[in-house]
């Protein structure tokens, strides 16, 4: 077994373990942290597949930003865990049924019959001067130009929609206008009064 293969199994095992813990942990903060671990392991697997750019961006975007906001929300929520588990047995049969159907469907689509070295030859390692980032950029801005631009527009619409949904002016909220604050002169706020010095009281 080569060292790369060993690393692959380590990362994959950790990934599966973390992913299982995400859905079995009682504490939602623990679940979120295991999801972070799962992302890190996935990044490791991607690094082994010579996709450095995607691996680092996975850490940067998902671990560094998305999961931080996730944790932010989860930490603030005071989840009542007893009421969460109240209807557990009642819904269990339906849940199991859906899970079994999904599992069968997944097996049909991505089952072991579709993989293997005879289906996909193992990729040839690139030379040391190969830049994954440059290659990705070249493909993204030439071959996949339209899908890329479309994705950008959809994201922009999503941003505008999200802001539009949450932005509302409440009459009781008081806003500060930094421009006005900067323009304020001392004379607007303080009145200096000239007066004669008072005699010492005796």
């Amino acid at each position: 077994m080569t060292f790369e293969l060993f690393l692959f199994y380590v990362f994959s095992a950790a990934l599966l373990y973390a992913a299982t813990m995400v859905i079995t942990q009682r504490n939602s903060v623990h679940s979120a942290l295991f999801l972070v671990l799962a992302f890190c392991c996935a990044a490791g697997v991607w690094l082994l597949a010579e996709a450095e750019f995607l691996a680092i961006v996975l850490i940067l975007v998902y671990v560094g930003a998305v999961m931080v906001l996730f944790l932010f929300v989860v930490m603030m929520l005071d989840v009542d865990q007893a009421s969460d588990r109240a209807g557990y047995m009642k819904y269990a049969p339906v849940g199991v049924l859906i899970a079994v159907v999904l599992a069968i469907e997944l097996m049909l689509v991505v089952g072991p019959g579709n993989f293997g070295l005879d289906k996909f030859a193992s990729p040839i390692p690139h030379a040391a001067d190969y830049s994954n980032t440059k290659e990705l950029g070249r493909v993204l801005y030439t071959v996949y130009m339209y899908p890329f631009e479309l994705a950008a527009v959809i994201l922009l619409v999503a941003i505008i929609a999200a802001i539009g949904l949450t932005l509302r002016k409440r009459p009781q909220t008081r806003y500060q206008d930094p421009a006005k604050q900067v323009q304020v002169k001392a004379a607007d706020r303080v009145r200096i009064v000239k007066m004669a010095t008072e005699k010492k009281w005796s």
């Binding site: 450095e52 750019f53 680092i56 961006v57 850490i59 940067l60 671990v63 560094g64 930003a65 931080v68 830049s131 994954n132 980032t133």
Partner: peptide, 15 residues
Amino acid sequence: NAGLLYILALTSVGV
């Protein structure tokens, strides 16, 4: 090759 990206990713993990 992606050194700058690596550093940006690691500084964001520090939080």
